[in-house]
Amino acid sequence: MAMGKKMTSAIVHLTLILATIVTIYPVLQVISISLRPGDSLYSTSLALIPEGATLNAYKTILFEKPFLLWMRNSLLVSITVTILGVALASTAGYAFCRYRFPGRGIGLMSFLISQMFPATMLLLPLFLLLKKVGLLDALPGLVIAYVATALPFCVWTMKGYYDSIPVDLEEAAMVDGLTQIGAFRKVTLPLSAPALMITALFSFITAWSEFMVARVIIQSLDLYTLPLGLESLAGTFQTEWANYSAGAVLVCIPVVALFLALNRYLVSGLTLGGVKG
């Protein structure tokens, strides 16, 4: 019995170790390449810190390429998408949760259905729509596209979470002297912090790492976001791999920082909405 348990534990751990290696190796490889002196992608060395490691690539990417401009554009777009995503999803989710109105069922279902189509299918309609309203090759156009794609998931997350908050709490707040909006703001919203964090993070990452839609909507070099900028580093005949990797590492930093900051909300947030507690 004890032997069987040990065996199971060993297999589980071995699987987890393998999965961790598979996950972490490419990241370490990218960091390693970013520290290499030349532009060589391939090396026979297994050393994590390559021989003659240098931060030159970081210097180049930060000061000789328009990396900071791309970063500014990406931050602008991502933060706006996050703010809009949270504001719209938190209120729309609340309406879907607490009110019964014509079109409620269809609305929720259409949100769900929109998630079943791959993002590339939305490219053409999005392009045509934005062209019609004159928002092609403009950051607001990109913001609209990202908010539209992130919103269905966020609304469902928020609605699921509100469903688990007893309506008694809002009613108690209303008897205590608040309006329904006041009760939403002072009671429901603070209690929904984990779901709001998930929504914020999802909206941010959707905008931060997206390439395809940005590629179609943005043409001007000075409006490039980070994924577009990074791609532009890959030349037709020669790619500066060290610069490319340094850029990739720098792109990851804000997302990792955000993850670490919101970690404690995420652990509870990801399980929320599903179970009534």
């Binding site: 008897v175 309006t179 603070p190």
Partner: peptide
């Protein structure tokens, strides 16, 4: 509206605000 009726209600579920301390619940 409920807030203008000058009533207080005790719910079956107690409906205490879980994110607030006892003091803040009573003071709400």
């Amino acid at each position: 509206a409920p807030r203008d009726r000058d009533i207080a209600m005790v719910f079956q579920s107690y409906a205490l605000y879980p994110h607030l301390t006892v003091f803040e619940n009573i003071a709400f």
